[in-house]
Nucleic acid binder design. Structure first.
Lengths: 227, 227
DNA sequence: GGAGTACTTGAATAATTTGTGAACAAATAC
DNA sequence: GTATTTGTTCACAAATTATTCAAGTACTCC
């Protein structure tokens, strides 16, 4: 359920689709752009973990887009360059420009996946997020966004929400949640304590306008995050 | 200045020497091993931040050494695989085994250097500088500029800031920061010590006029550099 | 509708977490 | 070797968060 978003910037629709299919099979979230200008926009909206970037683009070249990313707010995103050029100089230039890896077309999808995996092994954990119904939790940033607005949660509220959002629609007993929140010493914590945390969590993440809550009580069983 | 040791594991003396020369020209510290067994020993003694690993080795194969490293205490070291094999499957297997990059012989030294740079940039040992909100840190020079003014940081303050700035907005627990600051002997260092370093760091890098600090406390979780 | 159980809630209290200055220790420079 | 800088711990205050309790509300099953 934790997804990593990959932005594919490629003007050839067939290749874009191919990459999307392979990535989705490995359960990445895929977003696309067909040129550099569109890529900028999508990049700012989606904060992808990884960009797969064709260098030959209309409008704004891959090189320029790469440079723009490296000067941007989220300069730490990973970039895999993809191009028909096979000359060493291009590869060196691409890497020096800030790419993490460089692949030449035609490429084996398996090789691309292996590259994606290798790159995300290094950087992936920092940009993981779960997005459900306008609520976005980013475990490594310790941040929760409700409709793009940051909301402050305490440690236990955060961990509670994170655990529930990792398994939407699954009911967890209070006992299980206690074990989750107090990994070392859960003894003596009462069920009522979980109720109290759920209450404070709800105050922060529920819209009172909505008829049904995100975190729902399952009478006699526990709580679940519905989606 | 952060010391960067590269371990070259390669049985062919000429290639080993060639790589050493190129790396030393870029002022890396180079250590060598001619087979997997020797590589283990040197690895444990020198704690390199990068391994350039030939796969065809006597005694203990590159694959086995790679696996051993990934199961070891310092499993996060970067690995660039180097081999005469050019088949896609080998490349995929190498990357899946935990390599960060894969190069086939014969290789262009420039390309190898570009790969080294790209890999180290990603694991945070290389980059020339990180600039965020008027604060610029240059790891190779060991220098920090606040609005173009040099500021003096102690070793720990520097490493702390560098690690936080490498991953802006990511929360690091005190425990993680201790591991980062005391890579070989973290035992017995208290959380309070990190607080003390953060305090002194803040005195040096925060403008008291600004309402929110660059280095922020995330209660119950740790610290992060916000951007 | 009533009894019984399960959940919610707000307030009171307890516990934890962080900031801070001072003291001591260790490392480095002179 | 001494002086200076840097690093670590300690102790306490302040702020925040966690937990429990008790009373109130809602739900379910007869």
């Amino acid at each position: 359920m934790i997804k990593q978003t990959v932005l594919v910037v490629e003007d050839d629709q067939m290749i874009r689709r191919l990459i999307r299919l392979y990535l989705e099979k490995e359960s990445y979230d895929v977003v696309e752009a067909v040129n550099g200008e569109e890529a900028k926009q999508v990049f700012l909206e989606e904060h992808p973990c990884l960009i797969i970037l064709d260098l030959m683009l209309p409008e704004l070249s891959g090189e320029d887009f790469c440079q723009w990313v490296r000067e941007s707010e989220h300069q730490d995103v990973s970039i895999i360059m993809l191009t028909a050029k096979a000359r060493i100089d291009d590869k060196v230039a691409g890497l020096r420009m800030g790419a993490d890896a460089y692949m030449t077309k035609p490429f084996e999808p398996d090789e691309l996946l292996a590259q994606v995996e290798a790159v995300l092994r290094r950087t992936g954990q920092f940009c993981q997020k779960i997005v459900l119904d306008g609520l976005c939790i980013m475990p490594r940033k310790g941040e929760v966004l409700l409709r793009d607005q940051t909301i402050d949660l305490t440690k236990h509220e955060f961990n509670l929400l994170y655990h529930l959002m990792q398994h939407p629609n699954v009911v967890f007993s209070r006992e299980e949640l206690i074990r989750e929140l107090y990994p070392y010493d859960e003894q003596g914590i009462l069920d009522r304590t979980i109720d109290a945390h759920i209450k404070k969590l709800r105050e922060k993440i529920e819209d009172q306008s909505a008829q049904n809550m995100r975190v729902q009580t399952v009478r006699g069983m526990g709580y679940k995050f519905v989606h």
